[in-house]
Nucleic acid binder design. Structure first.
Lengths: 148, 148
DNA sequence: GTATATTCGGACTTTCATATCTGAATATCT
DNA sequence: AGATATTCAGATATGAAAGTCCGAATATAC
């Protein structure tokens, strides 16, 4: 089974989209997010810290604490998050790992993979976080039950 | 850095394309392929065995032995090889791992990822092994030096 | 027939992403 | 102030993919 993004990156995407679907001013518990998205809670904790350190989300410690989407993050795409977890040039590798693959000395899939890569970048870049959460209203309605 | 296919699958692709570029009746040593493509030799051994067991390549033991592309493999695409190493339905997973993602309850990237997936399948399926090796004549000319 | 070169197959080791554990720090509530 | 609930951070554990090692089997050459 092929996975495009690492688990860390997938979970980061999911968490941000989940937080974007919450009412403003009502932070979500790590445990709540973990339950809703079936992410191992402690692993999610690390990812949330990374996202917070880079300004994508904010947190509130102690009782009634939790995590919220940063105000500025509502208007961005997830491309920066992808670069954060997968590296800044995360689609640069030759698709079949041919030694020394380049535009000049391409592998047999070079051109077609280039087109597919552009499509993937567009996919990530086209929608803002706000819009992404709207696209999954039905799904969020379903997993909202996990708010404890 | 994102990798679409596993190392095993990448190496299998490379080995088959390499063998397709060799003159018929002149088997290639495991060591030669390993040198030419910078693949760890013993790891390559396992992959060649898998390919042989599934009929993609043939082998000759003992002195003057080596590996050759099966006659029938010259006219196939690499889709079967991808399925062999990545699983029969290797592009079925949700691109961001959302729980219960489906056509009915899609994740926000569902549609766009579907298009990208089709492109990837086409990329693998469109060219026959023969044609793939022709597409990299310049590269093969370069790595031909490794024939020992 | 002996020496040599190779494939073949199984066991083992390494590495890294993923996941878990534990306790400290910090905020809120009564 | 004390009890409680949460984030935060570092250490540790797990599992699967990647890579290595060794010896058996087999073919060729002389």
């Amino acid at each position: 089974m092929i996975t495009l993004f690492s688990k860390s990156c997938e979970y980061a995407f999911q968490a941000i989209i989940y937080l974007a679907g919450r009412p403003i001013g009502k932070p979500a518990l790590q445990r709540e997010i973990s339950n809703a998205l079936s992410i191992p809670p402690h692993f999610l904790g690390k990812i949330l810290q990374t996202l917070r350190q880079h300004g994508y989300i904010t947190s509130q410690k102690g009782k009634n604490g939790g995590f919220s989407l940063s105000k500025s993050s509502r208007d961005i795409s997830l491309l920066g998050v992808a670069q954060l977890f997968e590296g800044p040039d995360f689609l640069a590798k030759c698709v079949i790992g041919f030694p020394g693959c380049s535009d000049d000395v391409p592998c047999p899939f070079h051109k077609e993979w280039k087109v597919a890569k552009e499509l993937i970048i567009e996919m990530i870049q086209y929608n803002r976080v706000n819009e992404l959460s709207e696209l999954i209203d039905s799904k969020l309605a379903y997993i909202k039950d996990f708010e404890i």
